[in-house]
C-alpha cells in the first residue's frame, strides 16, 4: 500500500547510499521497469517489507508507474539521501566519549563494502592495523571493540584508512556520528559515506532531527505528487514519525509509522482498571469508616 511505499522511500534513503554515494557522486537513475527498480532497491539495502509493500502498491495501480515515474522516484531518493548525511567540517581533534570508553582491539579481520563510485576502483579488504586514521592519534576514537573489528577503506589514490565497525557506528548518536565523521578529511569522509551500510544509513535516518526529517519528507513529496498523492505529517519527533498518504479527494490511502511493523492488538486498559480499583478501594475505605463508626461505643458524660 501507499503508506508502506512511503516507508520504503524513507528507508530507501538509507540503503541507496551504497550504490550512488550520496551527493558526492551524482547518479543517474535508469530504472525503467519495476523489476529494475526492485533490484536497485534491494542492492541499496531497502528492507524487504518495504519492497513487498511497493509491489503491493504497484499491483494495485500498475498504470501509474511509468518508466518516467520510476526514474524520477529514484532520482528523488538520491536527492533525499543527501539530506541525511553529507561531509562535515574537518576536526581531527574531536573526541567522542562513547568511542574512547571502548576497549582497544586488534583490527585483524576487516570487512568493507565496495567503493566503485569515484574511480571505478573497488575498495578492497586488507589487514592494515597501521592504516592512516586521523581519529586514532587524536583521541582514541578509532578504538575497536573486542568483538568487532575496524573497517579498512581504500582511497581513490590507493591509500587506506580505517574507521570503526558497523555496529559501533550504529550505536552512536546522530551528533556523535557527525563528529566522528569530522575526524576524517573531506576525501575520507566521502569514501566513508559511500561505503555506509544500509543499516548504518537507516540508523542515521531514525536519529535525524525532526527538522531534517521534514526536509526529507518534503523531497519525497515530489514523488508522491506524480502519483496523485499527498503526504501529511501526523506526528513528528526526533524519535518517531507518523505519516499519512491521501489522494486528491482526501481519502486515506495509507499510514506509515517508521519502523513499526507489529500492530497493537490489545486495548490498553491500565487506566480503566486503575479507575475501577480506585473506586473499589474508596468504597471499601468508606465502608470501613462506617463500620468503625457504627460499632464504636461512645462514652457518655456520666462515664467520664
Amino acid at each position: 500500500m501507499r503508506n508502506h511505499r512511503f516507508n520504503r522511500m524513507i528507508t530507501a534513503l538509507a540503503g541507496a547510499a551504497l550504490v550512488c554515494g550520496l551527493a558526492v557522486v551524482p547518479c543517474a537513475a535508469q530504472a525503467a521497469t519495476p523489476e529494475e527498480a526492485e533490484a536497485a532497491a534491494r542492492a541499496c539495502g531497502i528492507p524487504e517489507e518495504d519492497i513487498q509493500a511497493a509491489w503491493n502498491q504497484f499491483y494495485a495501480e500498475p498504470e501509474k508507474y511509468t518508466p518516467e515515474v520510476i526514474d524520477k522516484m529514484i532520482e528523488q531518493l538520491y536527492i533525499a539521501q543527501g539530506q541525511i548525511v553529507t561531509n562535515v567540517p574537518y576536526n581531527p581533534d574531536a573526541v567522542i566519549p562513547a568511542l574512547t570508553d571502548a576497549a582497544q582491539a586488534p583490527a585483524e579481520t576487516v570487512t568493507t563494502a565496495a567503493s566503485a563510485a569515484q574511480d571505478e576502483q573497488p575498495a578492497t579488504a586488507s589487514q592494515t592495523p597501521d592504516s592512516q586514521s586521523p581519529a586514532s592519534p587524536s583521541g582514541g576514537n578509532n578504538a575497536g571493540s573486542t568483538t568487532e573489528p575496524d573497517i579498512t577503506l581504500m582511497m581513490p589514490d590507493g591509500t587506506t584508512f580505517t574507521r570503526i565497525g558497523k555496529n559501533r557506528f550504529i550505536a552512536l548518536s546522530y551528533q556523535d556520528k557527525l563528529t566522528y565523521l569530522g575526524t576524517f578529511t573531506s576525501d575520507q569522509q566521502s569514501v566513508i559515506i559511500e561505503n555506509l551500510s544500509p543499516e548504518e544509513y537507516r540508523s542515521m535516518l531514525k536519529q535525524l532531527p525532526s527538522d531534517q526529517k521534514l526536509d526529507v519528507i518534503d523531497t519525497l513529496s515530489g514523488i508522491t505528487d506524480d502519483l496523485g498523492l499527498t503526504i501529511t505529517v501526523d506526528e513528528l519527533t526526533d524519535d518517531s514519525a507518523k505519516i499519512s498518504l491521501r489522494d486528491a479527494k482526501g481519502e486515506l490511502k495509507g499510514v506509515a509509522e517508521a519502523g513499526k511493523l507489529v500492530a497493537d492488538t490489545g486495548y490498553d486498559r491500565r487506566g480503566f482498571f486503575a479507575l475501577c480499583g480506585a473506586l473499589i478501594a474508596a468504597a471499601f475505605g468508606g465502608l470501613a469508616v462506617l463500620v468503625h463508626s457504627c460499632f464504636t461505643e461512645e462514652i457518655t458524660e456520666d462515664e467520664r
Partner: peptide, 12 residues
C-alpha cells in the same frame, strides 16, 4: 458507598 463498590466491580 455501596453504589461505588458495585459500580467498580461491575465495570471491571
Amino acid at each position: 458507598i455501596l453504589l461505588a463498590l458495585c459500580t467498580g466491580v461491575a465495570a471491571a
